[in-house]
């Protein structure tokens, strides 16, 4: 058992099925163009690199190299498809435990590296690429903002190990001056504070959730199901709006819609 998750790597390998990897990127990134529903799509994963030059980013965290590397992988795609009527889809396979926490990271502007990634994903979406986030593991905080959260559609696998959150429990408890137990009690009754994927789904941010047989090592059935779902998501995006408004509308996110209505009326 390794100390880091291999889900992202395994799903990347299964979905991109031996396609040639894009070169010149940091070793912690896996990027390949493979077929999805008869069309080419770019699959991107951030994976653990135990030899990462940055010691605080060796367990799959999104750090400086990962942020800028994601940006350059997506930029390359935008440029290559610039004059093509049919833009390749981008599938962000999300299994990111956190952003990298370290002195080197802060000093060298990890916020700027993550902005680079978010910027590229957002520009890909605005340029007409279907951007799909596939959550197979953790999707935490800044790491998720940089890798996945700018997607047109988010799909999550149903599993206790798939979770979205703003901060790990120990740190969240410290910052909000609570004990971890108090935090867990609150999380059980306040949907946006919960760590589980069902509570997250109730916020309306997911397009689809899917159950699979073996989330750690996907079976052929799993790959077929997920591939089909990704294809449907890409088709759902095609020719439609390019913003993130499809995430609005859930009861547990009612205020987000109400605020926008009021702003528009007063604008």
């Amino acid at each position: 058992m390794s100390s880091y998750s291999l889900r992202g790597l395994h799903w990347f390998q299964a979905l991109s099925a031996g396609a040639k990897m894009l070169e010149g990127l940091p070793p912690s990134l896996r990027v390949a163009d493979a077929e999805l529903g008869g069309k080419a799509a770019r699959f991107i994963a951030v994976v653990a690199d135990p030899h990462n030059r940055f010691p605080r980013a060796r367990n799959g965290e999104v750090g400086l190299l990962e942020g800028w590397g994601l940006a350059s992988a997506v930029d390359e795609l935008i440029a290559a498809d610039q004059d093509k009527p049919c833009k390749r889809a981008v599938i962000a396979i999300v299994d990111v435990p956190s952003q990298a926490y370290g002195r080197r990271e802060e000093a060298l502007g990890i916020h700027q590296a993550l902005a680079g990634a978010a910027d590229s994903y957002a520009r890909a979406r605005l340029a007409g690429h279907a951007v799909i986030g596939l959550l197979v593991g953790k999707a935490m905080s800044g790491a998720f903002l940089a890798h996945g959260y700018q997607a047109n559609r988010l799909i999550a696998l149903r599993d206790p190990g798939v979770m979205v959150h703003a901060m790990g429990k120990a740190s969240a408890a410290r910052v909000t001056l609570r004990s971890v137990e108090e935090l867990e009690t609150l999380a059980a009754s306040v949907p946006p504070m919960a760590y589980d994927i069902d509570s997250y789904a109730s916020l309306g941010l997911l397009w689809e959730t899917l159950s699979v047989e073996q989330i750690e090592r996907p079976t052929a059935n799993d790959v077929a199901r997920v591939t089909e779902c990704l294809g449907l998501a890409v088709a759902d995006v095609a020719g439609g709006i390019r913003d993130l408004s499809s995430r609005l509308g859930a009861t547990n996110r009612e205020a987000s819609s109400k605020v926008r209505q009021l702003l528009r009326a007063q604008w």
Binding site: V164, A166, M167, V175, T176, P192, M193, A194, L203
Partner: peptide, 13 residues
């Protein structure tokens, strides 16, 4: 953090 995932979603927006 008291509105964790809704804050994160808003920041993505």
């Amino acid at each position: 953090l008291q509105e964790a995932n809704l804050g994160l979603a808003a920041i993505a927006d």
